[in-house]
Design a binder for these strands. Structure first.
Length: 478
RNA sequence: GGCCCCGUCGUCCAGAGGCCCAGGACGCCGGCCUUUCAAGCCGGAAACGCCGGUUCGAAUCCGGUCGGGGCUGCCA
């Protein structure tokens, strides 16, 4: 049997990481088995579905490198891969089920249904006990699927093993709403049948709906696919990951300076592992190793700290030129202007040192703000900590020595400043930190000698003099 | 309430009766390196929810219990 899998997001919001993880597992599974990965848009909820969200979904998949073989935008043998284009098809299918006695119209109101559920509970029966076909048939309202009560629904879930649902626990669910639009159950199941989906790999939240889908598949003339229900992704509070956990949209991570390859690696670790030792691996290694039998049953908490660490690993592994290319837009965005050629050259020189210290691309601009602007902020805390008695003299001494250097480069700067340390009999912390703060405005920066080299002699000396002045100025004792 | 799922370090995963007084990773703690911060290196603390049972032997099998979660809509 050839593997045909799909991801079928609903464009009712920015795609969030839970769906992305499902997409990833489907994609890995398809690629591993040389199968077909399909992207379908389940936009049966016309009220909430928006085209901009569909764009966001597809952009997200492309960003991660999840390419699809059939589906929206790329097409395929099944016509439209957007359910809103197939409403007629679903309606026909629903009517056909009614004609065959497998479904029925129901014009009961929500209040009536609620009452039936309440009554069943009061009688200690299953809540859905009375949600069955009424004795008197009607020809209006929504269409419900009639769940056969003669035997349990059993199936083998690839990750959950043997599953069994008693028929009385499955309600006669609506397949066509009274406005003639299909529900998710009908549209999704019919599409899975008609598109010959072999495996349905999705979140565990749909496990309770699976008996409905199996029954529907058969009624529709298909063979139910193999099901694999993935463990849910939780927020730090142990609840299903949702908007209230903050940034759960993929877009937030894209903008937040995460590398797609790191994101991919990280998400593949949520409910799966390549082996017991390896945490970092390439997409091809994941494809080669991926299968559903290593998918875990337990929910996974989305651990931002581990993601950040992994991202840092990937950033450090980047070729320097690649890092520069990826980080330049972030720097320019934060500066609010394009860098000129000489600034670009300066940045490129120091970029490898920034690269080592960056976990998220968006951190980089802050590390080099001092390099491009004379209006960088001086951290007051860093200043008071480092500018102690006698510091002005040290800075003045440094200026003298730096002015005498023949060739302005990190080696000569280091030699000059080290001999100063020696002559003054002070340690690096006493002698160098004040320079760092004076020049970069912070006690945290890329390595000092390289930083001064890139900044240039004149700017360096100007900043040191400004610091000396500030130290001597009224209102700035010491 | 009903149906269903899950239960190994704080977190993610490994473990499919003896290889486990439980392994890897993040985080945490300590040390080394060091011009700051990172990175790197070395070391450390940290878990089989609980109770029974099966077995010569259980993290692994069974039962119960407790705990967490999902679903319960003419949303998906």
């Amino acid at each position: 049997m050839s593997v045909r899998v799909r991801i079928a997001p609903s464009p009712t919001g920015l795609i969030h990481v839970g769906n992305v993880r499902s997409a990833l597992f489907n994609w890995l599974f398809a690629r591993h088995h040389k199968g077909t990965f399909i992207v379908r848009i389940d936009d049966t909820d016309v009220e909430r579905s928006l085209r901009e969200y569909e764009v966001d979904i597809l952009e997200g998949f492309r960003w991660l490198g999840l390419d699809w073989d059939e589906g929206v935008e790329v097409g395929g043998p099944h016509g439209s891969y957007r359910q809103s284009d197939r409403f007629g098809r679903y309606r026909d299918a629903a009517h056909d089920l009614v004609d065959r006695g497998l479904a029925y119209y129901d014009d009961r109101t929500p209040e009536q249904l609620e009452e039936l559920r309440t009554r069943a509970q009061a009688e200690k029966r299953h809540p859905n006990f009375y949600i069955r076909q009424p004795a008197e048939p009607v020809r209006a309202g929504a269409i419900r699927f009639s769940v056969p009560q003669d035997r349990p629904i059993e199936f083998e879930d690839v990750v959950r093993d043997a599953m069994r649902f008693e028929p009385e626990t499955v309600d006669d669910f609506v397949i066509l709403r009274s406005d003639g639009l299909p529900t998710y159950h009908l549209a999704s199941t019919l599409d899975d049948v008609e598109y010959e989906i072999s495996h349905v790999i999705r979140g565990e939240d749909l496990l309770p709906s699976t008996p409905k889908h199996i029954l529907l598949s058969r009624a529709l003339g298909g063979t139910p696919p193999v099901y694999a229900h993935l463990p849910l992704l939780f927020g730090p509070d142990g609840k299903k990951l949702s908007k209230r956990h903050g940034d759960t949209s993929l877009a937030a991570y894209r903008r937040g300076g995460y590398l797609p390859e790191a994101m991919l690696n990280f998400m593949s670790l949520l409910g799966w592992s390549l082996d017991s030792e390896r945490t970092i691996f390439t997409r091809d290694e994941a494809i080669a190793a991926f299968d559903l039998d290593r998918v875990s049953k337990n929910p996974a908490i989305f651990d931002l700290e581990k993601l950040a660490w992994l991202n840092g690993e990937y950033i450090r592994a980047l070729a320097p030129a690649d890092f520069i290319e990826r980080v330049m837009p972030q720097v320019e965005a934060s500066l609010g202007r394009r860098l000129n050629d000489s600034e670009r050259a300066r940045f490129s020189t120091i970029a490898p040192l920034v690269q080592e210290r960056t976990k998220l691309l968006i951190e980089a601009p802050g590390q080099v703000a001092w390099l491009f602007s004379e209006h960088f902020d001086i951290d007051p805390e860093a200043w008071t900590k480092v500018m102690v008695e006698g510091t002005a003299d040290v800075l003045a001494d440094a200026v003298d020595r730096l002015e005498k250097i023949d060739i302005w480069e990190s080696e000569s700067i280091e030699a000059a400043l080290r001999s100063m340390l020696e002559d003054l009999a002070i340690n690096a912390r006493q002698g160098l930190q004040p320079l760092r703060v004076a020049v970069t405005g912070s006690s945290v920066s890329p390595p000092l000698f390289e930083s001064l080299a890139v900044l240039g002699r004149q700017r360096t000396i100007d900043r040191l003099r400004a610091a000396i002045e500030r130290l001597g100025a009224p209102g700035h004792p010491r």
